[in-house]
Amino acid sequence: MNFVNFLFVYIIVLIIWTFYKRYFSSSEFQVKNKHVLITGGSSGLGFSFAKLCVKNGANVTIVSRSQEKLDVAVKQLRGFSTKKDSQKIESFACDVTCVSEVEQLFCSLIVPVDIIVLCAGASKPGFFHQQSPVLFKDQVELNYLGSVYAATYCFQKMLRDGVCGAKFIFISSACGLLSFPGYSQYAATKFALRGFCDAFRGELLLFQYTSHIFFASSIDSPGFAEEQKLKPELTKKIEGTCVLQTSDQAAASLWTGISRGHYQITSDFAVELLRISNNSTNPRNNFLLELLLLPFACIMQHLSPAQGVAKCERRHKQFTGHMTLYSAKPSSLRLGLVIYSTSS
């Protein structure tokens, strides 16, 4: 059998296998009558996922720091209720960066938690030399430790309550798969969360619990609007003109990935290619398809930073090549190009 025939047979087998995986081996994510707790559930992706849970008959508790935002969100969620008399939709004001508040949250919950969605987080982009160590500490506490604290006390409560088939859903970011100038503070926390989830997943299997991690792309949300105010121009140029997803679209992608039993979940093709090339020893979503796409993933991984730098170089030729980091007031653009020109 020559290579062309082999490739043809491989693609036919791939199509059949993918069709089987999508329509026969996956089942709808079941949340009816289950208790779903969502941190960061008052807005953005957390709120959109809460809507899906409510529409599918779940009892939902949303958590956020602002009681005012929670009250508005709960009122809106009740409008999507399928069982207005019996379906419980509640809220709890809690700062997930405070261990004592997180512990109090799970001590106060009477009803067992079946599913927890760890969505609280924020990005404060900027260049390393222009930000204080305090901001890095705050980012670690919110984006990483906030999820760890909530997972810790929720896990303990699940075991005390004898919950069967519990599920942990962690919200990471595409910055948990790659990083570039402007995201040193944020990407570090998302890489840390990914490492935690990979280890935690194996431990959960001992209790017949499951977990998922969602590498979300850029979402059109209040958080993203605040992020844009802080983001350096170089970071925006490297990112390019990405198409923003709505929070509802991102929540639907997450829901689909959970239904298919995927551990690592993405919401667009570019991030999926990054996931394929950064899979480590984690279970693959579709081995045959990923084997075919892996060369393309490696090519994209190799070229994407160079494309971003080339775009900057074309627009700002005067800054390329021989810049120094020791000028009195280095501009954001200078620093970014020096980083990449010295590493190329």
Rank of each mutant, 00 (worst) to 15 (best):
61 T>A: 12
122 A>G: 07
90 E>C: 12
77 L>M: 13
97 T>I: 09
114 D>F: 05
79 G>W: 00
66 S>A: 05
48 S>E: 12
61 T>L: 08
81 S>E: 04
132 S>K: 14
124 K>A: 03
116 I>G: 03
100 S>F: 01
99 V>Q: 11
78 R>D: 06
131 Q>Y: 11
98 C>H: 05
125 P>G: 10
78 R>P: 00
135 L>P: 00
117 V>P: 01
73 A>T: 04
90 E>P: 01
111 V>T: 15
119 C>P: 00
106 F>E: 04
53 C>L: 05
108 S>E: 03
134 V>F: 13
101 E>H: 05
125 P>D: 08
97 T>P: 02
105 L>T: 12
114 D>Q: 02
82 T>L: 14
136 F>R: 06
124 K>G: 00
71 D>V: 15
89 I>E: 03
81 S>D: 01
82 T>Y: 09
79 G>Q: 15
131 Q>A: 13
70 L>E: 04
61 T>C: 15
81 S>H: 05
94 C>R: 04
124 K>V: 14
132 S>M: 08
52 L>P: 00
68 E>Q: 10
110 I>Q: 14
58 A>V: 02
73 A>E: 03
65 R>V: 13
63 V>T: 11
108 S>I: 03
136 F>L: 15
88 K>L: 13
49 F>L: 14
50 A>E: 05
53 C>I: 04
108 S>V: 12
90 E>A: 10
57 G>Y: 09
118 L>R: 08
130 Q>R: 15
69 K>D: 09
54 V>R: 08
106 F>P: 01
69 K>M: 03
72 V>S: 12
91 S>C: 15
70 L>P: 02
87 Q>V: 11
80 F>E: 12
111 V>N: 14
75 K>E: 14
100 S>I: 10
92 F>E: 08
74 V>D: 09
98 C>G: 05
84 K>L: 11
83 K>S: 15
63 V>A: 07
119 C>Y: 01
51 K>A: 09
126 G>W: 07
53 C>Y: 02
86 S>F: 07
74 V>K: 13
121 G>S: 10
107 C>H: 08
95 D>R: 09
61 T>G: 08
122 A>S: 10
105 L>S: 07
119 C>D: 03
47 F>Y: 11
68 E>S: 14
79 G>C: 11
54 V>N: 06
86 S>Y: 13
52 L>E: 04
77 L>Y: 06
48 S>H: 01
65 R>G: 06
